[in-house]
Write a protein that binds this DNA or RNA. Structure first.
Length: 271
DNA sequence: ATGGTCGGCAACCGA
């Protein structure tokens, strides 16, 4: 059995529902994890997505900001939502695939939208950056994000950190820019290390090859300047490491009409 | 060196 998992910060699911449909028709992932849906659950375009084949939906949305969802062609055993930093922000949803989906051994999938962290990389003067660091600390401390050796688990999402030098267009110029400051990179890599997570994307595109998943809207010519960052991630637990067969970053979608500033990242697992 | 653009939702906030 083969499953495909996509993560995509859609930056408003209602505005870009036609781009979601276009992506689905081209890629048809089994699991589509979106972030920044910017949509309350009762306004989510459920019918359209069900018609597109996604009958199983784990929603965690709110009005105006944030919001995550897991859309699935396969039925879930369970879903869960975790609140981080004592806030009601919709930044996490997880699902478990099991016997109903044809898996004897369950697979847990976490979908995260880590706070972006504002502009000033100093937690003493920027509460948004302090929130981001606290959020990463809470992820580090979470037992749910430290899978046992036999446990089949996946983390995806817009983690809003580009941890490696080759995850940004200029390591030197971004050292003081939120998303690539040393403290964030250390914290993100610390979470990865504590859970023995494998960075699925870098399994196929190893360092030092440059690879990005986000290009700012504030660029006259995003493709010519190519000042990107790799903010969107797929990590797998050790039990799934040798099951990865492909990873694709759909850079073309950044050039679609009225695009998201993030592009979809898709991993394939042979189970 | 700075400012540049989006989306939500109705004045700015967040990215």
């Amino acid at each position: 059995m083969r499953i495909t998992v996509t993560t995509w910060n859609i930056n408003s699911v209602r505005l870009r529902i036609n781009l979601v449909a276009k992506f689905i028709k081209a890629v048809r992932p089994d699991l589509l994890c979106l972030q920044e849906t910017k949509c309350p659950d009762d306004r989510f375009p459920l019918k359209r997505l069900k018609r597109l084949g996604y009958e199983n939906v784990a929603l965690n949305g709110q009005k105006g900001y944030h919001g995550v969802v897991v859309l699935s062609r396969l039925p879930f055993e369970s879903t869960a939502i975790r609140a981080y930093c004592g806030k009601s922000d919709c930044r996490h949803v997880s699902i478990v695939l099991g016997e109903r989906a044809g898996f004897k051994d369950p697979i847990t999938l976490h979908n995260f939208y880590v706070p972006a962290g504002g502009d000033i990389p100093d937690p003493a003067v920027n509460a948004k950056f302090a929130h981001k660091l606290a959020f990463l600390d809470e992820m580090h401390a979470s037992a749910a994000l430290r899978p046992a050796p036999s446990e089949r688990a996946i983390i995806v999402g817009d983690l809003n950190v580009a941890p490696l030098e080759c995850d940004v267009w200029s390591h030197r110029q971004l050292l003081t820019v939120v998303s690539h400051t040393p403290i964030e990179c250390e914290k993100l890599l610390g979470i990865q290390k504590a859970g023995n997570w494998i960075d699925a994307v870098r399994t196929f595109v190893p360092e030092p090859t440059k690879l990005y998943t986000w290009w700012s809207y504030r660029s006259l010519d995003w493709i010519a300047s190519d000042r990107g960052r790799r903010l969107d991630h797929i990590w797998v637990a050790p039990a799934l490491a040798d099951r990865l067969s492909t990873v694709k970053v759909l850079k073309d979608s950044r050039g679609w009409t009225r695009p998201s500033d993030h592009v979809p990242v898709t991993a394939t697992l042979e189970l």
